[in-house]
Amino acid sequence: MSLAIPPHLLQLNETGHLKHFLTTENLSHELLTEILDTAESFSSVGQQAVKKVPLLRGKTVVNLFFEASTRTRTTFELAAKRLSADVLNINISASATSKGESLMDMLWNLEAMDSDMFIVRHQDSGAPHFIASQVCPDVAIINAGDGRHAHPTQAMLDMYTIRKHKGDFKNLKVAIVGDITHSRVARSQVHALNGLQTGEVRVIGPKTLIPYDMESLGAKVFYNMEQGLKDVDVVIMLRLQKERMNSALLPSEHEFYRLYGLTSEKLAFAKPDAIVMHPGPINRGVEIETAVADGPQSVILKQVNYGIAVRMAVLSMAMSGQTATLSNLTTSGEQGA
């Protein structure tokens, strides 16, 4: 049954190229590097007079967002448009598809309109995998964030940022700070960092926000900020959702900030040239001090800019992998429109 194929295998075609992009877990060093290199080649498109390349010309890309998002959706839209694709934006409230059946019906309808790619954000872990395996296997599925499971394009733009500023991953120490339990970004970052053979990957937070057996995922766990930040090259802060206070995971924003908020004093434990990252949007004074967020070590705004090139890379790679798969399946005379 195709259903039982884990995401990291489902997303590759017979030749080992991406045909979907569902997770950074178990991606080879080679493939991760290829994504970063391809992104690099797209990085100048934004500076051109005509900000377009024709790689996805004639392709229909559907932004399918079951969860609210501005930043991610916008950068995906820009990425697809710079690749010359036709882009459709669909925002669906969760209640409209509370039944699985209507979700499938809606997807089949969109597929019937000859869509070539779905960019999916969904509140349930595994939703893009479900769509790729069960609903529309011939459409390239890009995971734009699913539940707590994965947010692979965010992780790749973070890798791009790190490589841009720090070069090789081998000798780096990277710390991810905050709510790891509920974070799809953190999981995808840990997988990508390990795939790129990063020297040491750390996560820092209280026990209520660190998931079970995090060490086996490939990250060293620290409960103390000073110890965790000691000598790191990269600090990645995660956004803290306000509802965590109500579900008894934390006593207050104030105590969280005191213990795990990134202030100039705490940042001093990291290497002097350490960079500070954040997937946004930032809660100033909750997880990060304004002076640090806007300070010289912060690369937060650059991340946003890199996001477009990285997403262009992923979209073009997955589309070409999916097209190759489909043309192998069909007879040689037939061509996808």
């Binding site: 872990s125 539940g147 994965a150 998931p211 079970y212 995922l217």
Partner: peptide, 13 residues
Amino acid sequence: HESFTSTRLGLPG
């Protein structure tokens, strides 16, 4: 089940 698998898959344990 709360386990390494639930952590990996991001499914609440």
